[in-house]
Design a protein around this nucleic acid. Structure first.
Lengths: 168, 168
DNA sequence: CGAACAAGATTGAACATTAAACCATTCGCC
DNA sequence: GGCGAATGGTTTAATGTTCAATCTTGTTCG
């Protein structure tokens, strides 16, 4: 299987990868720091921001978890926190009684409105304005490819196929 | 001061930003998941990897914290964990008795060697191979600009200047 | 039908991270 | 030389996140 050794990164690949790693960390850091002045983390902002754009300001937990790339468990905990602050409420799902919808409250909606102005400036300052429009678009295209690569995972992704199937 | 409203993102800027956000999260996720099969997180790998490249396999805590974009406190905790696993040890700093150097042990060195092969394949699979060489380099250049933008922060970055200076 | 399995979400405990306070050393400077 | 501020690191507690187990509802299929 692995007859040839690992394909190490070339010097220029290495430096690109290092730049990505450090740059993305610094960016996340900066955005988070700016948001904290408004009393929330970027991951929390993402949640209420997604809700604010959704029809009827609501999304199912699992769908939302997928959107913001968080585990279900993590979202459950975070939602509880946000609920305590009065920004969201949980509602049972109509069709599927297993489901729960997270709904943005008017107060939460206000929060998004208040914070988004500052946040967009933050994104500009720490990212968009540092790049030429062409560069920024190129980054967008590249990261969209990264994002979309995972859409269709191979059907046997999880190796919990430890035995006793029909053929056993 | 804010005479004009926030400069909202255009539609295409918006979609580039969303692609970046989601793509970068998914990438980090994938890399982390792959590394976890080897019993460590990406942030931990970064630390021992930096140490393995440093002269004499050692770096000062603060320097290392800066390199991997972690708070000093976080690095302190993580270093303690890594020390318990036997991958690093702390040594007092020669010249500066406040300082502490984190040193990679032979065992830790072995760990880096073992894991790096798998890690580089992971980086390729989830990022490098998904882009054309030109795209990847462009991302590298862009993120280097993001990284370098913060090098020289304005001297009054912290607003802990609450009063009673000389002029008060 | 009904038994097994899948999906949606939550729980609680273990673990990791953050934030603020703290201690020791060094630097700046009069 | 010595006082005050800055730097380097750690500590503790509070806060967040992960991991595995659990509970409930839905789906599949013999």
């Amino acid at each position: 299987m692995t007859s040839s050794g690992p394909r190490w990164l070339s010097r220029s690949e290495q430096s690109a990868w290092r730049a990505y790693l450090r740059g993305s960390r610094m960016l996340e850091d900066a955005l988070d720091r700016d948001l904290q002045e408004h009393g929330l983390q970027l991951t929390e902002y993402e949640i209420i921001s997604m809700l604010s754009e959704a029809p009827r300001h609501r999304l199912r937990m699992s769908e939302l978890a997928e959107l913001v790339v968080q585990s279900r468990s993590r979202l459950t905990h975070t939602a509880t926190r946000l609920e305590k602050r009065g920004w969201v409420v949980r509602e049972p799902c109509e069709n599927d009684r297993r489901g729960v919808e997270l709904v943005l409250t008017p107060e939460g909606r206000g929060r998004v409105v208040d914070v988004s102005a500052a946040h967009v400036e933050s994104v500009r300052r720490h990212l968009v304005d540092l790049l030429s429009p062409e560069q920024f678009q190129a980054v967008g295209v590249a990261m969209a490819q990264v994002r979309d690569a995972k859409e269709d995972v191979d059907p046997y992704e999880d190796d919990d196929h430890a035995g006793m199937a029909t053929w056993a």
